Amino acid sequence: NNDALSPAIRRLLAEHNLDASAIKGTGVGGRLTREDVEKHLAKA
């Protein structure tokens, strides 16, 4: 659900052409954090 993404996370996802649903969020309520996105990028 993109409504739960902060603007910074949306921008980071867009810059790397990532789909938020492909990344498991570890923030409050399962929200994506910058660390989640960076860890996903490091794996790729």
Rank of each mutant, 00 (worst) to 15 (best):
G25H: 07
I23Y: 00
V28Q: 12
G29W: 01
L41T: 04
D3R: 08
V37I: 14
V37N: 00
D3K: 10
A20V: 13
H16Y: 07
L13M: 05
A20T: 08
L18N: 01
N2F: 04
N2A: 10
S6K: 05
D36P: 00
A8Y: 05
A20W: 06
S21T: 10
E35G: 10
A8D: 15
L5R: 04
L12C: 09
N2I: 14
K39P: 05
P7M: 04
E38Q: 09
A42D: 12
L32N: 01
G29K: 08
A4L: 13
S21H: 07
A20P: 14
L13W: 00
H16K: 02
A22P: 03
I23E: 01
A22L: 14
K43P: 07
L18F: 04
L5G: 04
N2L: 12
A22Q: 15
T26F: 01
R34Y: 15
L5T: 07
G27A: 05
A8W: 03
A14V: 09
R31E: 13
E35V: 09
G25K: 06
D19Q: 11
L41Y: 04
A22F: 10
A22Y: 08
K24W: 03
G29Y: 01
I9L: 14
R31Q: 14
L32A: 04
D36A: 02
K43Q: 14
G25P: 09
V28D: 11
K39H: 11
I23L: 07
A42K: 13
N1I: 13
A42S: 12
G29T: 05
S21N: 12
H16A: 06
T26G: 04
A44E: 13
N1R: 09
R11D: 15
R10Y: 01
T33H: 02
R34L: 15
T33D: 02
D3E: 12
I9P: 00
T33R: 06
G30Y: 00
N1F: 02
A22C: 05
E15M: 07
L18S: 03
D3I: 07
L13H: 00
D19M: 09
G27K: 02
E38R: 09
R11W: 05
L12S: 11
D3L: 05
L12Y: 04
D3Y: 00
G29M: 08
K24A: 11
S21D: 10
S6N: 09
G27D: 05
R34M: 15
G27H: 02
L32H: 02
T33E: 05
D36K: 00
A14T: 14
S21G: 09
A4N: 15
L41E: 02
A4W: 15
P7G: 08
A14L: 07
A44V: 14
A44T: 14
E35T: 10
G25F: 00
D19P: 07
G25T: 05
D19R: 07
V37W: 03
L13I: 07
E15W: 05
A14S: 14
A4H: 15
L5M: 11
L41F: 06
A44W: 09
A14P: 02
E38F: 13
R10M: 03
L5S: 05
R34W: 15
L18I: 15
N1P: 10
N17K: 09
A14W: 08
A22G: 09
G29L: 08
N2Q: 13
G27Q: 03
N1W: 00
I23G: 01
G27V: 02
K39Y: 08
I23W: 00
L13P: 03
E35A: 11
R31N: 10
L32G: 01
L5D: 08
L41R: 01
N2R: 08
S6R: 05
L5W: 02
T26Q: 04
A22T: 14
A42V: 13
E15R: 04
A22W: 08
D19L: 11
E15Q: 09
A8R: 09
D3H: 09
N2Y: 02
D3N: 10
I23D: 01
R10D: 15
D3T: 08
V28L: 12
A44S: 13
G25I: 04
V37D: 00
A22V: 14
G29P: 02
A22R: 11
N17G: 15
D36Q: 01
D36S: 01
E35D: 11
L12E: 14
A20R: 07
I23P: 01
H16D: 03
H16S: 05
L41I: 15
N17I: 04
H40C: 05
R10K: 15
A44N: 13
T26C: 03
A42L: 10
H16I: 04
R10P: 03
